[in-house]
């Protein structure tokens, strides 16, 4: 959105979000250390460090992966999504402590380089149960490292939102790798049903949330369209709430039709920032505002207000007997279309 890049655009909400993350992370570490010292007085500081950071990072990853589908199921959760990247980077920092310390602890000061040792000590790559589980964790860490390194909008724009989103979808691969890192690693010794059960509950929760969210949006995406003279039915006029939109999906492209100040306008449903669903946004101060990160566009021409330069496709609309129709052929990005008055 900004024309030049600043480290991070701090604002009150972000600061509150980050403060909450830091406090909760510290709370977890204090509790983990406290409970363990109480229950296991012979635990070593190294084991405490490795296990507290491992479990905290895994817990954070579960929260991170739950936020997306939760926001799709109930848009009231969107504030959690807004700064999700901060949670991701925090998780990366915690995981870094775990990874760096584990590599030092288990692989350094030996007769080969620590990284060679990581890959070459356990050579049972052909076995499932004896697979070198540390390697799984390391690959997951590389993915998270790449994500954290490219988390800033500078990278989002330079890699294009498409490449960036694909790269960041690798977090699902990282998640699977981490689950197996735990199952083929520490769980092979710490086989308490309590620990295995907790991990299973976490995994099933994440999977269920994603499937429910996917099912919900899939239904909306595959609704059959009613076509009339090249125009596609969107919604009854009265069903669109003021300053809000209805979305129609035609041949994999979504169009958002907004109702505001007695007028109707249609734009492409994908925000230029991260492909956020503009149709779930709202008109604020006369501008379409993206629900994800608040990027704004003027509804009549799809242009971001000055000095920003993002532009959306716009679409022709038609109103007939209280029914709204859209022409699915997009106008070039930023094309002004006179809003359709209905009053």
């Amino acid at each position: 959105m900004s024309v030049k890049y600043v480290g991070v655009l701090w604002n009150k909400q972000k600061k509150r979000y980050d403060k909450t993350i830091a406090l909760l992370a510290i709370l977890y570490l204090v509790l983990f250390v406290g409970f363990n010292v109480l229950l296991h007085p012979t635990i070593s500081p190294e084991a405490l460090l490795v296990r507290s950071t491992a479990t905290l990072a895994l817990l954070m990853l579960h929260v991170i992966l739950a936020i997306g589908p939760m926001a799709r199921i109930n848009t009231k959760f969107l504030p959690l999504l807004y700064n999700r990247r901060h949670l991701g980077v925090s998780m990366f920092l915690v995981a870094t402590i775990h990874v760096v310390f584990s590599i030092i602890q288990f692989h350094s000061l030996g007769n080969v380089n620590a990284f060679v040792s990581l890959f070459a000590s356990n050579t049972h790559y052909d076995s499932f149960v004896n697979f070198p589980f540390q390697v799984l964790g390391f690959y997951a860490f590389i993915i998270i490292l790449l994500m954290a390194a490219t988390s800033h909008d500078f990278w989002l724009n330079n890699l294009s939102p498409k490449v960036w989103k694909s790269l960041h979808m690798l977090v699902y691969v990282a998640y699977a790798l981490i689950i197996m890192h735990v199952m083929l690693g520490v769980i092979q010794l710490e086989k308490s049903p309590l620990l295995i059960g907790m991990l299973a509950v976490g995994m099933l929760t994440i999977i269920t949330l994603h499937l429910v969210a996917a099912y919900k949006t899939h239904r909306a995406d595959t609704k059959e369209n009613i076509e009339e003279e090249g125009f596609v039915f969107v919604s009854n006029l009265e069903d669109i709430k003021p300053n809000r939109a209805k979305v129609v999906t035609i041949a994999n492209e979504s169009i958002a039709v907004f109702k505001y100040e007695g007028k109707l306008s249609a734009v492409h449903n994908a925000c230029k920032h991260q492909n956020g669903p503009l149709g779930e946004g709202k008109i604020i101060d006369g501008c379409i505002t993206c629900p994800w990160h608040g990027y704004q566009y003027k509804p009549n021409d799809g242009c971001a207000p000055e000095p920003f330069t993002e532009k959306l496709h716009t679409y022709d609309l038609r109103l007939k007997e209280g029914k709204v129709y859209v022409n699915p052929n997009p106008k070039p990005e930023g094309t002004h279309i006179e809003p359709l008055s209905y009053e």
Binding site: K165, M169, H210, A214, T249, N252, E253, S254, N275, P277
Partner: peptide, 14 residues
């Protein structure tokens, strides 16, 4: 999310 991305998410999670 755009439809393509949603589809990809759905497939990955399945």
């Amino acid at each position: 999310m755009i439809t393509k991305l949603r589809k990809r998410h759905r497939r990955v999670w399945l």
